[in-house]
């Protein structure tokens, strides 16, 4: 539990420092252009890096088959996200899809 609090406090401190960075420094330092360009790719890279193992490695075991319920539910959720841009609807449809595919495929 102590380690959990350490992680929460350090992550919180670093996150706050990131948010404060340019607000506090404004006018005194501008980041290099390459750094600004690189930051643009952080969200898709990190989200995808966490997401794909959740789909293709359920419980740590590789499952690349088209009958992987998580893959099918993930594709369904991606379609809903793409068409509606609605986070909550994506979660509801994705989870319902998972339950449905798990029932059919097993």
């Amino acid at each position: 539990m102590a380690e959990t609090w350490l992680i929460i406090l350090l992550s919180g401190l670093l996150t706050y420092a990131i948010r404060l960075s340019f607000i506090a420094l404004h006018g005194r330092w501008q980041p290099p252009l390459l750094f600004q360009r690189a930051l643009r790719y952080v969200p898709p890279a990190v989200l995808s890096a966490i997401l794909l193992p959740e789909i293709f490695l359920p419980g740590g075991q590789p499952d690349f088959s088209l009958l992987n319920p998580r893959l099918l539910a993930g594709i369904l959720a991606a379609l809903v996200a793409w068409r509606t841009r609605n986070t909550f609807l994506t979660i509801v449809v994705g989870m319902s899809g998972l339950y449905l595919f798990q029932m059919i495929i097993r």
């Binding site: 643009r40 790719y41 969200p43 898709p44 989200l47 995808s48 966490i50 997401l51 959740e54 789909i55 998580r70 539910a73 993930g74 959720a77 991606a78 996200a81 793409w82 841009r85 609605n86 986070t87 994506t90 979660i91 994705g94 989870m95 998972l98 339950y99 798990q102």
Partner: peptide, 22 residues
């Protein structure tokens, strides 16, 4: 399978960022 909510949530966050080829 509540752990899968992480995956679908991230799908909802990821898809709108895929605006261009890079």
């Amino acid at each position: 399978s509540l752990d899968f909510t992480l995956a679908v949530t991230f799908i909802a966050l990821l898809v709108p960022t895929l605006k261009d080829r890079p």
